[in-house]
Simulated assay, not measured.
Amino acid sequence: MDYKYIRSSVNNHCQEIAIDRPAVFNALNFEVLEELKAAFDQAAQAETVRCVVLTGGGGAFCSGQDLKAVGTDLDGIPFKEIIRKYYNPLIIQMRNLSKPIICKLNGAAVGAGCSLALATDVIIASKEAYLAEMFAHIGLVMDAGSNYFLPKRVGYPLAFELATTGRKVYAEEAERLGLVNKAIEHSALDETVAQYVEVYVNASGSAIGMIKEMLRKSNGMSLEEVLEMEAVYQEKAGSHQDFKEGVTSFLEKRKPRFYK
C-alpha cells in the first residue's frame, strides 16, 4: 500500500512505521490515523513480521492532534465521533497486536502523540525527547488511552500532576518515573532499538504474543483468576512447536531457531 503521511518498511522481520509530517512535527490528521491503522493491519497479517517499531520522521515523534484538521468551527467539533472513529480503533488494535511494538521516541511526544507512545510495549527514548500531556492547556482532557496507560505506569498522584500541569517530562526523568524503559544518547537511539529488535525477531513469537495478551487481560483480575489463566496459557504454550525447539536447543547447547 502507498502511504502519503507515514512511511512503512519491513527489514529482517521487523516493520518500522514512521509518522512523516515533519513540517508540523508529525501532527495527527485523520489521514495519518487511517494510514497508521492500515500499517498495523499489515503487521498483524504478515507472518514474516515479528516486531514493530513506531517512530516519527524528522526531529519529533508526534505533536498530537493537528488542530487545523478539525476545522475552525470550535462549537461544532464532533469530539465523540472523532475519538470513536479514528483514535479508539487504533489504540485497541495496537494493544491487541500479538507482536511487540517498540516506540523509538526520537523527539517530542505531546498530547495524543504521548498517548500513542504509551500504547506501545517498550519505549526507548532519546535523551532529547520528552512526553507531555498538554490537553488541559487548551481546555481538553486526555484521550487516546492516556487515562488508562498513564496511571498504570506512574500511579494516580503523578498521573494527576502530569495530566493537569502538562509539563514536559524529558527522557531521563521519564526513565526514573517508569514512563519509558530506557533513556539514551540520541546518537545511540537507532543502535539501541536495533538491539531490542534483534531480541524480539529471534524470540518465540508465540510466547511473546501470549505474554502480551496475558498482561493485558490480568488488569482487573483477581489472583485466583490470574493463576487459572496462567494454567490455561501454559498448556497452550507447551503444545506449540516453539517449546519443543526451546528445550531441544537448550539440551543441544545452541541458540533456538524459533518458528518464523
Rank of each mutant, 00 (worst) to 15 (best):
Asp66Arg: 07
Tyr130Gly: 05
Asn202Phe: 01
Met134Phe: 14
Arg257Phe: 02
Leu36Arg: 05
Leu227Tyr: 15
Leu215Glu: 12
Phe250Asn: 02
Tyr86Arg: 03
Leu36Val: 07
Asp73Pro: 02
Gly57Asn: 12
Gly246Lys: 00
Tyr259Lys: 15
Lys37Ala: 13
Phe160Gln: 08
Lys152Gly: 02
Asp41Met: 06
Asp2Trp: 09
Leu90Ser: 03
Pro157Trp: 10
Lys80Ile: 01
Lys255Pro: 00
Ala136Trp: 06
Asp2Asn: 14
Cys62Pro: 04
Gln15Gly: 01
Ile17Ser: 05
Met214Ser: 13
Leu28Met: 11
Met1Phe: 08
Glu198Pro: 00
Leu90Asn: 04
Val24Arg: 10
Pro100Lys: 11
Gly238Cys: 08
Asn96Ser: 11
Gly246Val: 00
Ile138Gly: 06
Gly59Ile: 05
Thr120Lys: 12
Lys99His: 03
Val49Pro: 00
Glu173Leu: 11
Ser187Leu: 03
Ala69Pro: 12
Ser126Thr: 04
Leu162Pro: 11
Cys51Gly: 02
Gly111Gln: 08
Ala60Val: 06
Ser8Tyr: 04
Glu230Asp: 14
Gly56Gln: 07
Phe149Glu: 04
Ala171Trp: 03
Gly59Lys: 08
Lys80Arg: 12
Thr55Lys: 15
Val24Leu: 14
Leu162Tyr: 14
Asn219Gly: 09
Phe135Thr: 04
Arg176Lys: 15
Leu177Pro: 07
Glu191Ile: 01
Ile83Val: 13
Glu34Met: 13
Phe250Gly: 00
Pro151Met: 13
Gln45Tyr: 03
Ser63Val: 03
Pro22Trp: 03
Phe40Trp: 08
Asp2Glu: 13
Ser9Phe: 15
Pro89Lys: 06
Gly59Ser: 13
Val24Gln: 09
Asn88Lys: 09
Glu16His: 09
Asp41His: 11
Tyr3Gln: 02
Arg7Ile: 08
Gly205Ala: 12
Tyr233Thr: 15
Val49Glu: 00
Cys103Leu: 06
Phe135Pro: 09
Ile138Val: 15
Gly58Lys: 05
Asn12Trp: 05
Leu223Arg: 15
Ala43His: 05
Ile208Ser: 03
Lys182Pro: 01
Asp242Cys: 07
Gly76Phe: 03
Gly209Phe: 06
